[in-house]
Every structure is written in structure tokens, then in C-alpha cells.
Design a protein around this nucleic acid. Sequence first.
DNA 1: TTGTCTCCCCGCGGGAGACAA
DNA 2: TTGTCTCCCGCGGGGAGACAA
Lengths: 671, 671
Amino acid sequence: MEIDLNHAVKDGDFEKHGGGNWCSLSPSSSASCSSSSNSVVPSVPSSIYFELWHACAGPLTSLPKKGSLVVYFPQGHLEQAAASASNFPCLDVPAFGLHPQIFCRVVNVQLLANKENDEVYTQVTLLPQSELEEKNLEINGHEELGVEEGNGGFLSKSTPHMFCKTLTASDTSTHGGFSVPRRAAEDCFPPLDYKQQRPSQELVAKDLHGVEWRFRHIYRGQPRRHLLTTGWSIFVSQKNLVSGDAVLFLRGDNGELRLGIRRAGRPRNSLPSSLLSDQHTHLNILSSVANAINTKSMFHIFYCPRASPAEFVIPYQKYVKCFSHPVAIGMRFKMRFEKDDTADRRCSGVITGIGDLDPHKWHASKWRCLKVRWDEELVSDHQDRVSPWEIEPFVSLPGMTSPSAPRLKKPRTSLMPSSPDNHLAGRTGFLESDESVRSSKVLQGQEKVIFGQPQHDGDRIDHPLEFEMHKFTGTGSVPRNISEPLKEPLTTYTGFMESSRFQKVLQGQEIFPYEVLHGGTRLDNIAWKKNDLGCNMFNMYQRPHPNFYPFVSENIGNIYATKNEKYKMKCDSIQPYMTGFEGGSVPPDVSSIQRMFPGIVREDVCNPTATKIVLEQRPSENLTPSIDVDPKNHAELSNATNSGCKLFGFSLTGEMSTSNSQSSSRRSCTK
Amino acid sequence: MEIDLNHAVKDGDFEKHGGGNWCSLSPSSSASCSSSSNSVVPSVPSSIYFELWHACAGPLTSLPKKGSLVVYFPQGHLEQAAASASNFPCLDVPAFGLHPQIFCRVVNVQLLANKENDEVYTQVTLLPQSELEEKNLEINGHEELGVEEGNGGFLSKSTPHMFCKTLTASDTSTHGGFSVPRRAAEDCFPPLDYKQQRPSQELVAKDLHGVEWRFRHIYRGQPRRHLLTTGWSIFVSQKNLVSGDAVLFLRGDNGELRLGIRRAGRPRNSLPSSLLSDQHTHLNILSSVANAINTKSMFHIFYCPRASPAEFVIPYQKYVKCFSHPVAIGMRFKMRFEKDDTADRRCSGVITGIGDLDPHKWHASKWRCLKVRWDEELVSDHQDRVSPWEIEPFVSLPGMTSPSAPRLKKPRTSLMPSSPDNHLAGRTGFLESDESVRSSKVLQGQEKVIFGQPQHDGDRIDHPLEFEMHKFTGTGSVPRNISEPLKEPLTTYTGFMESSRFQKVLQGQEIFPYEVLHGGTRLDNIAWKKNDLGCNMFNMYQRPHPNFYPFVSENIGNIYATKNEKYKMKCDSIQPYMTGFEGGSVPPDVSSIQRMFPGIVREDVCNPTATKIVLEQRPSENLTPSIDVDPKNHAELSNATNSGCKLFGFSLTGEMSTSNSQSSSRRSCTK
DNA sequence: TTGTCTCCCCGCGGGAGACAA
DNA sequence: TTGTCTCCCGCGGGGAGACAA
């Protein structure tokens, strides 16, 4: 039972400090805990652990960046708690007067792992930003940009070779060992002397906890193949691996071998049981947050990327940005989901209601404030409520004319993994992350994707030809058109995840060096789609720069294209007020929109006449694409002539003239 | 992860409620938890579980009675926390303004067991009695008597047959099963058909968690013996039993079989790990207590009888009573200790100092306020500090003349078990307990102790011929005589534990039905030794009534002899104030005694002249022994003419005339 | 009476190539 | 290339009486 030494217990402080058995994997922390029964202690946190953590978490897991602004949703936190604890009684805990969304600055992010089951989780230390509850959004929007942490050096050091294999029945049977895919063995393991009759060697690999596992690696059989024999069955039984679970090996620059596991099902207990009793009670969660807010002190949350139903700490910018979607009852949307074995899938549905999930306790909450009906009934575990930032406006494929079930039909194997890799596919990554999502590319056979050859060339995939936008509807069942469907051949991507954070997953599940892919992010453009409606905020998507891959840099980590997506808004109060209204019974006029998203509705346009602005059209403007957040470029951006761009009463230009939300690549504006 | 349904989570309450994975074994609770990973869930708590819990806890474990008054020592609580968590950082936690001793009423006692390792523990719910911090001790002393709970019906129902066997190397080896002692098998197991060649049957026994274990019970070999074969090795491996651990079987009236284990060493983790992170942090412990006091609400403590270094919740009466010992620097004493493998032993030592263990944080604390030097250096884990209620004045054996190392030399096997039975022997039981200490008698071979034949007949054992009393000393190293050693052939027992709660442990370790032994307690006398010094409070011992065993009653549990030990005192304030002084550097005059024990030092005798009272002698008075707490008897006791009995400035009589501390059996006063 | 030893024997499972998808 | 099967064989351990403390 240890306490992370990074966290001093403050005298006279009632705050629970977590107390449990975890230690930091964060590269910035000097973890010096010894092994205990529940959680993880790497002797020397190194980059390879960092890589391993992310590999175990899955390629789509993203984490907030230290120092960045985020929005914390207590409701989501409680959801995770309820999901993690199987029999946990969801007592009717008071909200302690907490706001449903709490703006915080990320003080620390610690990568941790449960010693019981190797599930990864993270402790995020948040400092409530009460001033953000007020009106100085603008200032903080700027301030946000200033937060740049020099972790790039850390990330650029290692070039791990890594592979991930879903265990077969033979791999987990008691007879025989683990069949290593040939190229995986050649890439990750030290070479064998193939001149021998039966070449073999001993491999030593450390898991997330720093525990060494030894395997006999032999090349035998007719035809020859790589096998792990002695030591493998012990590993399987100790880790309780079953067929369907995935094992990943990772080789660092120094040749050090690490291995991790990614279990098939969504984990039940990502947090060590020692933490569950304390950190996971609804009462404790809320009281510690309330205490932190009252005392203007930090609080800790544990986020289990693989166990949590949804991210409950999202980047501030993502939060703000999502309200640029014209969310309305009757609107069609799509959303990414995980599927148990078939990788993620994009499901479409229609918004049937907008209103508080819990009007009494979490009044004016945007957490799962959208009531939806899914097109597919098959997917049983879909929530019937989603949060605005989870969904994407629906974009149908070219050639698909039916707007009722316009699912993407391109072969999924080319984009999505068929492994547990994608269990978190339903979550879009944090926009502002220094430990951001790494793309995973999985090979099919010997086929190797060549860096520098963009897989998502702008015009090749995902041309949204049809843009759907339904009228607001009072009932939510029969959409009425507000505007005609917009047809335009824009180079628009279906989402951040699919562009800069795309996955190329074939059969072999090989994950490529992190920073190579990560470096590409730096060069992303934010493609603001300009159509006849003017600044159509449905299309605030990102797309990779055409020169995505060749621009690999050593200085990744410091610069993120997503940093460009800053906002400059004036709102008298971002503190939400909302009269809860449920499921489509209230006609969504502007005032209701305003109630839902007061934070981004400018006061001067908050009047009933704003409904007309919805259809106000502005000529699209040719903006210089911004591919760097370097302050040098700000002047250029500021000079862009954007004004009067409004949608649903939001002014998208004017004071927002320096915002990157105005930046768009010319290519994405082609029509 | 469940919460005991007995405990509602209060709204708006920051109090940690334990949250962990435990469920009640208490007969009064309707445990309805389902099994979880960490702790215990008996499907139907029945008396046999109750018996099993106590059997596993060890025969010397006692628990406070529901409704009774107790003294809670935060320091001791922290000690347990530190002892349980191996690597727990003992941070410098503030005392939260807590008093070092907190008077509480026992609201609930729950018997629990750790599902991880079967260690028993208990949750005690305490309600701080802030009024006791003031001066109405007398009222509460009376009130105390009124608290009688009708648990007797529960206890008197079952007559379990039980045996406990320390596992041999053969028992735990992989080859072969468990060798059942013949009489144990005959007593606890269903009879076999001995006419068969190899009689065998299947036994089903439930453990503390309600888990069923199946064993093949066979009678075979040459010569024939009872063995458990199939199923045994699974049990051993699952429970991680090793040679030296003890297994106990218990048969209820209905023939139901239970089994429990008692491990050899002092357990490290009696509490489930889920509780350790929360309930075991020093910060949380103290803050929850402080919160309870401030809000006049209950708080919970977890007590691990086998893991805790010392009891930190002791009966109020025991606490008050212990101050009648004339504790002084240089005084010799003895104290019970556990030894790892050799059962408990009585160690003697000398008090070398009186003063706060932690003068700054726990000022005026009586927890381990006595600094001692042990006669034996061998016993390494002896604390160099003890609490006043832990020690007994030293009484040497007849024939032993050396006052420097007067150890009891009688053969230990006749009184002490050679098994883990006695790991808690160092603790004297709660005087006020409804789940009190049960004596354990262990047979040697076929020899059976006949009830009704007291083993501790007054004149047979432990005649204290020499009464040692050293002068106060300023250094604590060289005792100076205040009075001459007193030689008197009193029938004095070496302690409560050895009298009413004696053990007769030979080799076979058979525990006898609980209420038979327990009923005996009811008939205990409190033998107040009267010697030439008058009311010599060194000898406030209990001894069993000569008719101990024959007086078995069905109505045990309602009446306790210990109830007689009530006090009637007037003190202006029991709230201790004490200037910390350390290790014998301050000559103990009355004022220092008063500082140490202000609660029982009467104001009118708190003056320097009281030092002379130490030697004041009173003729002993013949008091009628009180053997019942029935209020009918109070008048009788009140009429006892005791007055002016003082020692070290304490008035032992006067207002205390109705106290049982004045009652003594005539036999114990023989000289 | 019961702790220990040794012997017997069976089954599990590690490790190999065969074979096929 | 690799998943599955089957065969081989050795070890561990359950279960028995022998023997002795």
C-alpha cells in the first residue's frame, strides 16, 4: 500500500488523496514505490513504459495535456464509477451544488496500471478554474495557447518496434506456446541464428509493472515458425489470458523488451480495488470535487480509458467547439462506437430530444443532453443519450441517396482494426494532448505501409457529397427541413480521429513508431468548410495536410495543429443556466438553443430574431490555411477578413477574427 | 464492491462510510450482500457463523458489547493502521484537535472476514459521548449498568462441537490429505460405518464466507485413522495454508459443518485491501473521527483482533479501573505477550517512565504512557511503551526470592496453548462484552478436562507470597524502596485472563462449547485483594468462583459479572490535562500522578500531602462477594463499609462505596 | 494415536511435428 | 504463414499402507 510520492498529503486537509496502490508511470515523475499488491510500479519510468501504456490503452485513447484547459463532467465521472463497480449501489447522492460542467486546468496526468489485471488507468489532477465560470473566456482562450509543455523531447527519443496479436485458442491452450507472427518476431525480437537446426534464445520482457517475464523463443516446426514456448503458459495463466485477449510486445531503442495485454472485453475493474472503495463512491467523488472548488485546490480523478463509458474530461476547446454544431431535434448524426469484436463502427441516428439527463440534480447539464434514436436496433448497448461533443453531423456518401440509412460502406478492414485495438473507438481524442492519440497501423501479411504516402489523401476517401440538415422539429420524430440538403464535393473528413489520428488496420496488427505518426499531427490543417451558408459550422472538421507524412519532425510534441483551434468569444457568462426540458416536446427556437449552449451564444444575438440568422448566408472566404500555432502566424490569421458570419445566432467572425476556427484550407473549400 | 446495507449513506455527509467489500456477520444484521472479491458474505448469518468467527479470531479475542461505553484511542487506531499496511507512510498527520481518549458508546459491532485471506476483523460503530468529556462520570457509570442487550438468546442456542488442529507438514504436503484426530472426527463429523472395509463419506463444510468445501472423509490405514483426502489439497492451496496454520471445524446443532482457519503468524492484512486505502490512512481515520465528534454523529472503526498491536477500544470501566493501579516509575509489573510459536508468555518489566508518547500531538494521552524496560531482552518485538490497562502489578511466585527477575516458572504447557490460539494473549479482553472471550481448552491426547473441576483453584496456583513495590525513582533505573516487600499468602490471580478466561491448553486444542465456558464468566467474582495496606489496588484481580463450571446457565449473555465493576466517582473534569514528561526524569509526586490520571484523582485529595497516604493502611474488611449484577444486589454492595481507602492520593472508597472495586471474596483476602 | 515416508499410478501439460486453412 | 491437432513423455501429486514416534 503506497502513496505516490508525487503527492504530499496536506495537513489538515480532508481531501482524500487516493491513498491506493498506484505509482506514476508519467515520465515527469520519479516513481520510487516498491511493488505492492494492487497496482503498478515501474522501477524507472521510461519512454518505453509510456509507449507501453498507450499501447495497452489502445490506439484511440487520448489524454489531456498537462497544463491545458479541460471541462470536467461529474456526471460522467459517476457513470464511470457505476460502470466499474459491478454491484455498486448508485445511491441518490446530492450534487453538492456542483455545476454539471466544471472548467479545470490539468495539473498533472499520471499513467497507471492496475496490478491485479494490468488494466491501464490514469490519474488526472485538476485545478478548478472558477474564473472560467464567469466571463473571461476570451482571456483564457488566449492563455490556453501559451500552455506548451516541452515533452516533445521525451516523445521523440524512442522509436519502439511494437506488435500486437490477438491470442488464438492455440496460443492460450495448455499444449504448446505462443505462435509469433513472422514479421513481428523479426521486427521486435533479437535475430536468431537461422543456421542452427533449431534456433532458440531466451527473451526477457517487462510488463507495465516492471515484472520480468522470460520466454524461450524458438524457430522450429515444419514449416518453420517463431514460437514462444517455455514461460509462455505461466504468463498466460498468471495474467489470466484467454483466447481473444491481445498481447503486445514492444522493443525500445536499447533493445529492451516490454509486453502488455489488452483484454477482449471492456474491463470491469480498471481501478485497483483499493481505490474503488474510496475513489469510486459517488459520494466521495462529488465531495472531493466540491471541496476542491470551495478551497480552490486540486482534486484527482481516475480515468479508465478502457472501462469508462465515455470521456468525462474533455478539452475545453472541444467542448466549446462542439456547440458550433447546430444541434437540433430531428437532426441526423453519426457517432463512433466500439463493437466487442468487430472493431469500431460508425452508427447513425437521429436526435429526438434535447434536455437534461437529470433535470433536478444536474440542471442545465450538457452531459448526455441529447436524446437519440439509433438507426440500428442491433447495437444493444448504445446509450439513448449522448453528449453534443460525441456526435458528428451526418454526411452521406457519394452515390448513396437514401438519407435514412446512409452508412459508410467502404471496406472496414482498410480503416479499422479487427482487434481489441478499437475498443475506445467511440471516443474522439482530446484535442489538446501531449500524450495524444497515436495512430495504429496494422499490417496485412508482409504489406507494409510506407511513411510519406498518405493513406487519406484528401480526394480519395470520404467525399461528403451530400450534406444533410434537417429542420428543427418539435416532436423529434418527423424532421422538417430548415434548409435543403447541401450537395457539395468538399474535401471533408468525418472527424479528427479519422484524419490525423487515422488507423490503418489490416490483419497483422502492427503498431508503428509513435512519434512518426504523431509528428504528422503537427501538420494538420483545420479545414473550415465554407459553403453557401457561409461559415457552416457543421463542417468544422480537420483534415490532414496533403504533405502529412513527409513532414516528420524531431520537435513534435511542442506544436500541435489543434492548438490553432482557439476561440475568441465574448460571453457575459459561460455559467450555464437552463430550464430542463425533455425529449422534443419543446420546439427548439433560438432561446432554447441559447438555454442549451449559453456559453457560446453571444448576448447581442440572443434574441428571437436570431432564428432568421440561421439561414443567413455569407460568401465563403478564402482563408489561408494555418498549419502552425507559432505566434508569428497569428497576425496573418488576424488579418483574415471574416465578419458577420453567423449561425444560429452565433457570430463566428467579428471578435473571432483571430480564431483559427476561421482558418480553412483552400482545398477544403472547393465546391 | 458492496456496501453493508445496514449503513445508509447520509446525504451531504463527507464521512467515509467504509464502502468496501464487507458484509455483516453480526447476528443482528440481515446481511444480504452478494459475494464480491474481497470480503465476506455469509448467506444467512447464523449462530454457527458467530461461533466460527470467534473461533477464528482466537479464544482470547473479545469485543465490546453493543450499547456499552468504551474508550477509543486514536493513537492505537493509527498503530493498527500502520501495522496492517506494510509500507504505509506514517505521515505526520495532525490530531485534528482530537482528545487522545474519546469516550464513546458502541452503536454496533459487526463481525467480518477478509475474503482475501480469511482474516477476521470487525467494524465497530461508535458514537462519541461528548458529555463524558465533562464531569458527569457518575451518571454514566450508572447508566452503563442499564445497557443490557438481549443477545443471550442467540448465544444460548447453539452447542457447537468444534476442534482446532495445527497443520503438520504432512497435512500440508502435496502427498496425502489431512489427518483428523480421532476424537475430533468422532465429535464433529457424522459417524462412519466402521463395519465397512474402508468407511468413507463426503463432508461439506462452509467457511466464513459461506463457501462450501467438500472433502472425502475416509477411515483407513494400518492402524486405522481418520483422513480427509479428496478436496483437502484444493482447500490447502486455495487458502494458502502452510504448516503451522490451524484449521478448525465446527459442527452446529443441525449437523451443519463450518470450517475456519487461523494462521500462524500475525496477519499483515486483516482488512481487505479495498478498505486499506481509505479506512487505513491516518488522515482519514482521524478526520472521520473528528467529523463525527463535531457533528455528534457515529463513526466506524475497523478492528483486527489478530493484526492489531493492541486494542484501541477498551471498555470504559476497564479504562477507569486501571487507574486504581498505583502506577509509578520503578514499579514492577507483568504483562501478557504473544510469542510467535510458543503461545503467550507473561513478561515482566519495570516502569521506567511515565509520560506522553507524543507530547505535542497527543498531549495528555494515556495510550502507551508508560515507558518500560523488560526483564527479558530476548523478546524483540516488545514495545517499550505500554498502556496502563495492559499491565498487571507484579506478583512473584512462592519460593522465588529474587525480585529482579521473578518470572513465573510453572510449566507453561499446562496453561498456555502451543498453537496460534494464543496470538492475542497479550490483550486482556473487554470487560464488557457480549461477544466476550471464550476459554479454549485443549486436550492432550484423550485426557478431557471435566467441567466443574476448576483448574485454578485458589490456593493451588499463583500464590503471591511476595509483593513488590519499589520506591519512586527519579531515574527509573535504580528503584528505591518506599515500602518493604509485602509477603502474604493471598489467593491472588495473575490476571483476568487467567481466571475467568483461563485456558487449558494441552496438545490437542479442542475448543469447548462457547456458552458453557461463557456462562462461567457470569459467576465470576471480582476479588479485591485486601491486605495490610488496606485496599491495595495492585490486586484488583478477578478469580473464578470455585463453582465455576457447574453453574452453567441458559441465560448467559444477559448477565455479566463484569458488570459489577462499576465506579462511582466525582471528578470535576475527566478531561485530561497533562504536561508531557518523559522517561523518569520527573519524580512522580501526587501532582504528577494527578496529571497522569486526572480523571480519577479526586480533587479533594490532590495535594502534596497525599503522598503520605500511599502508606496509609487500613484494616481489610470482610466484604460479601458479589457474583451478580442484578440490581437487587446493589443495596447489599452499597452497604459495604469502605471509606478512606486511598493509595497514591486516590480515594478508593468514599463515594466509591457502591463500587464493586470494593467487593472481594473472603477467600482472596486470606492472609 | 498420528506424523512421516515411500511407493504406485494416473493425468496434466509442455513440447514437438503433421497437416491444413 | 500460422492455427489446430495429435502424439510423446516426464513430472507432479493424489492416495494407499508401512513404519515409527
